[in-house]
Simulated scan of single mutants.
Amino acid sequence: MPTCRHDTHELAWASEGTATLTIEGIPWVVSPECAVWIPKGVPHKVPVLRKAIVFPLWFEDDAPAPDWEATTAVWVSQELRSQLMRYIQSRFGSGETESAERDTLLGMLPSHAQHEPQLPTPSDPRAAFVAERLLADPSDARSIEEWAKEVGTSSKTLQRAFTSTTGLNFVEWRMRARLRASLPLLAQGVPVSQIAERVGYSSAPGFITAFRRQFGHTPTAHGQPAEA
């Protein structure tokens, strides 16, 4: 994937399908329910897209953009989705209309900010192989011993590979991957019990406990815009 770096802020959003952008070594998912704000100058990689329609929206410094210094996930409510579409359509009209729709869109973003758990990509090829499989299927419950056997190493070596290249041990990394995978499902209104099973938890209470520890609130409270 080619690395991009812009002199403008970018809001990446998928109107259909999902895509994973790699931003400073961390995978971020964009979907109809989740956009990603990329501050200017931040390097990121965009995959070849075949099953997703992704809109990269760029904003100059004179735009009333959020003062986010770090990459930020944005929950796309129905209201925000409608505004996104109005802004995209306005870009084919008059400049005055585009400016108004842009300012309205940017003004809505702060109340839709989501803070996803950071998920560094392992640089060790064995750990990277395991991480890629877990991102594709977070419900995979294989132990580190089982994964180590698959990649032809010992569990201790694989554990060190995760810790030394991500700062997280295997269990911590997998937990964060599962919680990240749960966010688009929550935005779609999937019941918590189903989400827990789909992202690898044996019970809903276990998922809720892990989620609360990471985000400070329950899954059902997540994705609610902050009150003005």
Rank of each mutant, 00 (worst) to 15 (best):
S82D: 15
S82T: 15
Y87C: 13
I88R: 00
Q89M: 09
S90L: 02
S94H: 06
S94L: 05
G95T: 05
E96W: 09
T97E: 06
S99F: 11
E101F: 02
E101T: 00
S111C: 10
H112Q: 14
Q114E: 15
H115A: 13
Q118F: 12
L119V: 09
P120E: 10
S123C: 09
P125E: 13
R126V: 11
R126W: 11
A127I: 08
A127H: 02
A128Y: 10
F129T: 15
V130P: 03
A131Y: 01
E132F: 10
D140H: 07
A141I: 07
A141R: 13
I144V: 13
E146F: 07
E150L: 15
E150S: 07
Q159G: 15
R160L: 15
F162A: 00
S164W: 13
S164L: 15
G167A: 07
N169E: 10
E172A: 06
R174F: 10
M175W: 04
M175R: 10
R180W: 07
P184C: 05
P184H: 01
L186K: 00
L186T: 06
L186W: 03
A187Y: 08
P191Q: 00
P191G: 11
S193I: 13
I195L: 04
E197L: 12
V199A: 01
Y201F: 15
S203C: 07
A204N: 08
A210D: 13
A210H: 02
R212D: 07
R213S: 12
H217T: 08
H217L: 14
P219Q: 05
T220K: 13
T220L: 12
T220V: 11
H222L: 09
Q224A: 12
